[in-house]
């Protein structure tokens, strides 16, 4: 057996991680997350808002911090679950969960769990930039064409859609804010690095202000 001699003691260069050719597309999506969030909040009235950790929590703060917003600093994968418990406790109030694709991917089981009680007041909006924004903008699975809206549809969610541009957002807003749920919208937003706008960090403060605004004296 013959073998070509390799260069001694020179390790071969490891292959670069394959960068999906479509990964850069999110840098061209027309919707900008800091312009989408104010439109959701402007129309949501006194809805109860849960914002997933990372960029959605900064976005909800940049759009105007409010007592009935509960931005998360952790609990990755738990935003929809918190929204479900809240929606079941407050069936007459709209509950809007705004989270990112990475956070949502960590809690995919909730696509099934939500469907047990199918709360009509629960709306989930996933700001999908196909990136893990807090850790260096690594691509998430949605950059590889994983379709979160189709997954929700397969789980039986009565209304799911993907929003790709401004016209799509305008036509989806009434459903995001008021359609019988559970509804899920995947809003494709541009992958961009934005200034941090931080909400209060103390969880007890966030909890207490939310309960006081919602429940009044019954909060204590």
């Amino acid at each position: 057996m013959t073998r070509k001699p390799s260069k001694p003691n020179v390790p071969s260069k490891p292959a670069a991680p394959r960068r999906n050719d479509v990964a850069a597309r999110a840098e061209l999506y027309p919707l900008r997350r800091r312009q989408v969030m104010p439109r959701l909040l402007a129309g949501c009235g006194d809805a109860l808002v849960i914002a997933g950790l990372g960029a959605p929590a900064w976005d909800v703060t940049a759009a105007g911090d409010r007592d009935l917003s509960f931005p998360l600093w952790g609990a990755m994968g738990g935003a929809v679950a918190i929204g479900l418990g809240l929606a079941l406790a407050q069936p007459r109030r709209r509950v809007l969960v705004v989270t990112g694709d990475g956070e949502f991917l960590m809690g995919l089981g909730m696509l099934a769990t939500v469907m047990v009680h199918r709360p009509r007041n629960l709306s989930v909006a996933v700001f999908d930039n196909e990136r893990y924004g807090e850790t260096g903008m690594q691509v998430t699975h949605t950059a590889h064409d994983v379709d979160l809206a189709a997954m929700a549809r397969a789980a039986g969610w009565p209304l799911t859609a993907t929003v790709n541009d401004d016209a799509g957002l305008t036509s989806a807003l009434p459903a995001i804010l008021a359609a019988d749920g559970p509804v899920l919208h995947v809003i494709k937003v541009r992958a961009e690095d934005l200034p941090l706008v931080l909400p209060p960090k103390d969880g007890v403060t966030l909890k207490d202000r939310f309960r006081k605004a919602l429940l009044g004296s019954a909060a204590y």
């Binding site: 609990a75 738990g78 679950a81 918190i82 418990g85 809240l86 407050q90 089981g109 939310f210």
Partner: peptide, 18 residues
């Protein structure tokens, strides 16, 4: 589907007064 969902659900329940 998995137990940690319940930790978060019950946090949401308490936010809503339950």
């Amino acid at each position: 589907t998995t137990e940690e969902e319940g930790i978060a659900v019950l946090g949401g329940a308490w936010l809503g007064g339950e």
